[in-house]
Amino acid sequence: MPRRSERTPTFRALAGVVVPPLSAMADIRLHHAERVPQTGAFVLAPNHMSEIDPIVVGAALWKAGRAPRFLAKESLFGVPGLGAIMRATGQVPVDRTGITRDADPMAAARALAEQERSIIIYPEGTLTRDPDLWPMRGKTGAVRMALQASVPIVPVAHWGAQRLMPRYGRGIRPFPRKRIDVLFGEPVDLDAYRGGPLDQATLLRATDEVMRAITDLLVELRGEPAPAERWDPSKRGQSETGRFDG
């Protein structure tokens, strides 16, 4: 089991507030939760379809035995009440350019790794632009974190959260109760990229492996094939603003 200090009283109190109402609205079913490391640091890399995803993924990771931490928009830390909770639970602030107010976000994330804690980073950086909600082209932040901190990166896919809150939606649709499946994958083998220079080409190749792993998990959940080509917003004139792009 993880060190007791990870599941702090603040985390337990927060889980007591968040998990019961979420469970009332959604039946969250974990698949292969045993793949979640129960000790040590790791990066959890999920797909991203809805604004409610962080709550769903955070609850799933909590149910799997670990405490969730995110790279989160710095502006959220200024919200009364919410900011205090985020600081107390060790969330990592980044602004829209990927720079924290006080330090490099990657250094802050590595500090969490040194404390043997998990961190959730969305490789897509923002909600997928794919019209059928398949994972789109990834950014390099999650892989760079994993390689620089020498920690595993665990892919995870979920399906069903978009029924609870549609993409770009602001309202929750609690009735009828939704089913959300969360499938954890085996850590992505990044050994070929460790120990060498982390130039952009290397990071992009490693990121593509992570996105392929996430997509394969989602194929398993959806029971249908993914598109032959991953959606690339830069080739379609779409904005890519989001949480953290590395």
Results as ranks from 00 to 15, higher is better:
Arg137Ala: 14
Ser150Ile: 00
Pro135Asn: 01
Glu209Asp: 15
Gly138Ala: 06
Val154Cys: 08
Pro131Cys: 10
Val182Thr: 02
Val151Gly: 05
Val143Trp: 07
Pro166His: 03
Leu218Gly: 01
Arg167Gln: 12
Leu133Ser: 00
His158Arg: 02
Ile172Leu: 15
Val188Glu: 03
Met165Val: 08
Val188Phe: 03
Leu183Asn: 05
Val154Leu: 15
Asp208Met: 03
Leu190Cys: 05
Thr202Asp: 07
Ala206Thr: 07
Arg137Pro: 10
Val154Asp: 09
Val151Pro: 06
Pro155Ile: 01
Ser150Leu: 04
Gly196Asp: 07
His158Trp: 10
Gly141Arg: 03
Thr207Ala: 11
His158Pro: 12
Ala201Glu: 15
Arg167Asn: 13
Gln148Cys: 09
Lys178Trp: 06
Thr207Cys: 07
Pro187Arg: 09
Pro174Ala: 13
Asp208Cys: 05
Gly196Phe: 00
Gly160Phe: 03
Gly185Ile: 00
Gly141Lys: 04
Ile180Leu: 03
Val154Met: 08
Lys139Leu: 05
Ala206Ser: 12
His158Asp: 08
Ala157Leu: 07
Glu186Ser: 10
Arg173Leu: 12
Val156Lys: 11
Arg170Cys: 06
Arg179Asn: 13
Arg137Val: 15
Glu186Asn: 02
Arg205Ser: 08
Ala192Ser: 14
Ala146Glu: 12
Gly138Val: 02
Gly195Ala: 08
Gly171Glu: 12
Thr202Phe: 04
Gln200Ala: 14
Val143Lys: 05
Arg167Trp: 09
Pro135Ser: 01
Lys139Phe: 14
Pro131Gln: 10
Ala206His: 05
Ile172Tyr: 13
Arg163Ala: 14
Ala201Ile: 00
Ile153Tyr: 10
Ala161Gly: 11
Tyr168Met: 04
Gln200Asp: 15
Ile153Val: 14
Lys178Pro: 02
Gln148Gly: 15
Met145His: 14
Arg163Cys: 09
Leu183Ile: 00
Leu183Gln: 11
Leu217Gly: 00
Val154Trp: 08
Met136Trp: 05
Ile153Asp: 12
Leu164Gln: 06
Gly196Trp: 00
Val143Phe: 07
Arg163Asn: 14
Asp189Tyr: 06
Pro197Ala: 15
Ile172Glu: 12
Arg170Ala: 11
Asp216Lys: 11
Ala142Trp: 09
Leu204Met: 09
Leu204Arg: 06
Pro176Ala: 06
Arg212Phe: 02
Ala149Tyr: 01
Arg137Phe: 13
Val151Gln: 07
Gln148Ser: 14
Arg144Asp: 15
Gly196Lys: 06
Gly138Leu: 04
Asp189Asn: 11
Met165Phe: 11
Pro176Arg: 09
Gln200Pro: 01
Leu203Cys: 09
Ile172Gln: 09
Arg194Cys: 05
Pro187Leu: 09
Leu198Asn: 02
Gly171Ser: 08
Leu217Thr: 01
Ile172Val: 15
Ala213Ser: 14
Tyr168Pro: 01
Lys139Tyr: 14
Lys139Thr: 00
Leu218Phe: 03
Arg194Pro: 04
Met145Gln: 14
Arg144Lys: 15
Pro187Thr: 02
Pro176Ile: 01
Leu133Met: 03
Pro152His: 10
Ala192Val: 09
Gly141Glu: 11
Trp159Cys: 10
Asp208Lys: 03
Arg170Pro: 05
Asp132Ser: 03
Thr207Phe: 08
